[in-house]
Every structure is written in C-alpha cells, then in structure tokens.
Write a protein that binds this DNA or RNA. Sequence first.
DNA 1: CACTATTTGTCCGTATGTATG
DNA 2: TCATACATACGGACAAATAGT
Lengths: 272, 272
Amino acid sequence: MDELESLFSAKDIASLQQESHTPLYHQMYLLLKNSICDGTLSYGTQLPTEYQLADTFKVSRITAKRALDDLSAEGLVERRRGKGTHVIYNYESPRQAEPPVVSDLHHLESIPEDTSVKVIDACFRQAPAKIKEAFDIDTNELLFNIIRTGQKNNIPFAYYTSWTVGLAGEHDPALLASASRTELLRGAGIHIINIDQTVSATLPTPSIAKTLDISPNIPILNIVQCSYDKKGKLVDRLEGFFHPERLLYKVNIKTDLIDNTQKTQQGIVETI
Amino acid sequence: MDELESLFSAKDIASLQQESHTPLYHQMYLLLKNSICDGTLSYGTQLPTEYQLADTFKVSRITAKRALDDLSAEGLVERRRGKGTHVIYNYESPRQAEPPVVSDLHHLESIPEDTSVKVIDACFRQAPAKIKEAFDIDTNELLFNIIRTGQKNNIPFAYYTSWTVGLAGEHDPALLASASRTELLRGAGIHIINIDQTVSATLPTPSIAKTLDISPNIPILNIVQCSYDKKGKLVDRLEGFFHPERLLYKVNIKTDLIDNTQKTQQGIVETI
DNA sequence: CACTATTTGTCCGTATGTATG
DNA sequence: TCATACATACGGACAAATAGT
C-alpha cells in the first residue's frame, strides 16, 4: 500500500530491532502510538492490517497483532473483524494565547499589556568572577546590580539579573532602579551601539525556580544580553531566565538579505 | 553497606521495574554502566557483590550476576573468585570543544569550521497534525521530511527535522537530500522572503537524546525556523534541537534599531 | 441468497529469553 | 548448576464477522 510507505520511513522500519532488549511488539506499539498521538493518524483512519504490518516490518502476524491489541486496550484504536483497526483517538492541538511583544531585553519596561516588572534588589556590589571577566576588570570596582522579575497577570515568566559598569557610585540605587533601563544608561552618558544576545537552555537554580514558581526539573530559556558602547567596550550585561511555556523568543530575518552573506536580524521577545 | 547506599539513590533503586519492557538484568547493567562511564565508579573500585546487589535491588542473585557478567563481557569490569568485581575502565573527562556559533539554520551547510551535516532520513510522508496546521493543509498531502544531525569533530551537537511543501513527489528523496537546503528550495522555484525563528527550551525525546548522546534529563535548545514565500505562505519548517553546551546561538541587534523599536516590532510580529 | 475476499479472533506447537529459588 | 514458571516470537491452521459481487 502507498499509505504504508508514506506512513513509515525506511528508518522507522529499520528501527525495529530484534537485538534490542525491548520486545518487538512493544517497539511497534510505540511507533504506532506516536503517529496516533501526534495526529499523523487522525480519528477514523484505518491502520494497516496485521498482515501488512507483519510484512513491512518483517515480523510475525502475532507480533503485529499484539501491538494493535495493546493500542486497543489503551483505547487508542478500535478493532473489528472484517473491518480492520481504526483510530478512535481525537487529537487536539494545544491552544495558545496571543503573546504581547517586546523588542529586546533592554526595554523591559515597554512590555505592553498586563505585564509588569518588579525590582527585587538594586545595589552597588562586588561582582562574581565570571562577571568581572566579562567586563574585563580586575579591581574591586563596584558594579550596579539589579534583580527583577517579569510577570503577566501576576504569573511570573522571567527572572532578570543585570550588571552595569560606569555608573558613578554617588547615585541612589533606589532612584536608578526606578528609572527605565534606557533612560538610566542615557542619563549616565552611555550610548549603546551594539547588542549581542546569546541564547541557551538550562535548569533553574533553586532561587529562580522559586521566583518563577516552577519545578527545578523543567528546562528554562537563558538569554545573556551584552551591550557595547562605541568603543566596543562592554557596559551592560543583562541575563534573563524565562519559563519556556510563558514566553516565546522570536527572531526575524529580512528578505533580500537571505541570499547575501550579510544578514540583519532583530530579536523579538514575546510573552504568553 | 554504606557504599551501597551512597552509590545508589532511592530513586535509582526504585527505577528498576518489573513491569518495564526492559529486562531487569539489563536495567541493572545500564545503571552500573552509567556510574562507571561517568566516572562515579573510578578505576579499581570494587563493585557490590552479587548478594549485595540482589538484596538492595530486590532481585534474585542470578539477575545481579547477569548484569555484572555483561559488564565484564564489555570489558568495563574484571571478575575474580574471592576478590569480587572491580572496575577496569579509565574515565577521562571530555575535552570541552569550542562550540560552533549559529544564527541562521537555513544555511546548515555554511556552518563553519569542521562541522558536518549528516542525513539520517529523507522521504515524502504524512505529517503530524501540528505540522499540517502550521502549513494550513487539511488533506493527506505528502510533505518532504528530512532528518539530519550536525556534528563537530564527530561530536553531535544538533538534531534537525524539516518539513517542506510544494516539492513535486516525482523527485527522488535521496537526490533532494543531497542538495543543499537553499539550492533545494530555489531549484523548486521557491523563493524565501521571510524567516521567523522561535527559540525555546525543552527536554529531549528519547531518540534525540540518543542522537545527541546526552541524558534525557538535561535541557536542550529548541529552535523552530519557518520560511515564507512572497505570498506570505509557509513553505518550509525547520526545527533544530541543540546541545546547549556544544552550540552557541547568537543574535546581534543593530544600533539604530535600539532606540526605534516600536516601529520595527509591528512589521515583525507573527501571531501564533 | 450464496459466494468470496478481507480482516480479526482463537488455538496449537515450538524455540528462545527472562527470572526465581 | 538445576528445575520451574512465565514472556516473547515464530509459523501454521481454522473460525467468525464484515463488505461487496
């Protein structure tokens, strides 16, 4: 059947291995279950017959039957003599809310709609070695450190920590914290020329997990944003940790530039 | 024994399950092998005796013996009467390779240095409901699906799966797979005008974990890249999964956009 | 109505793998 | 090492429900 060849790739068929420690019928069961649960095989679709499966996967009919029977026992398919095996699982795509938008992490305050940013802490302090290295300083110079959270409808989705160099120590931290991030830098005569964002995935630290109200086992998005002045000197380092299901990070690549080697990109952050 | 309690957590012991489709002795073998291969049990360390293992894991001595014998057959341990079972595997900490940097998945081939892309599978097949929805098709139209891996110095760092619409079925999948990604689309008369990337964090599926050679518990970077033609129609969807320590994803934001975000946002926002 | 092809249900016998005491 | 029980996998055979001619 044509259906069979389009349903299973050569790799799928080869993936069934006698040498594996997992029973053949169970490997087959998993393969079919995946196709049903991701909607490849939709409601009402007739599965291949026992003989077809046995033939394409080079197993006995009993083995194919066991896989189908297990699907049936789980309520994913219905089996009838003379009719065949049909999918009775209804795939429903997860509905997602429309996310608000922000252009880059620098404009935390400009996140629209009902998102808010709360300052947890703001002070001048000594930086950890990793941060000092990034700023290329070896003195005990104090840096301005802010820790914030972002939330929408009182549900936290982001944890930010930032380090900024070149802010004279006489300012009142509370005042600095209340200013918008761009105002803060501009007011200090700092002009950002270039922003680099490095994106990664990690597990939350206990304090971040607690702040974001998530389990410490679920992966979170980690974005480090480094801002440079016209001399190419790092002046601000902002690190954000995001709940992957409450925030989407989007990048758009422009059209006519795609075939050129030079590409301009713009980062977009959307919260859900 | 204290050693035993410190070697295996309660969770480890509970992880051995009779109901699983994997044999008990093999579950036990995997558990011990992991401890040996990640350096927890170093060279020369004596493993628990058959009786100790059987006791702590609540299995018969034969089952424990089988696990140890399999380790021995693989050259990881040495067994001697009256002496016990000792590790003879020398753990070497993996040298951290310089991670490749990527920002546009479309040019998989242009990833620099000694990285390579390998095609795992390439065929026309039925797509999962999620993919169909993204392409806005409700027929059983077959889409072109390629699964690839990216590796640097033979160390895998990426797993890609892509779906492409509008490639006539008469083409040979093997031929299509051998062409570069951009050539493939251009050859089919498809012109990409716009590319969206959505970045997230997730846990690897078993097959991805196996391909990337990582534990299923560590978070990975997940990037979905959607390419649109001039009509704004989605023609290609490329999803990449990346080992967070073996790849850096970087975005650069140009200066003039920084103070001018409001405008550029509007043109770029895509509803989900 | 019978006839047939299709498809699943049930049963047998056998061989091998798994797990226990 | 042995005996035992159960699970897995195979091939074959026949019965029973379904659908179409």
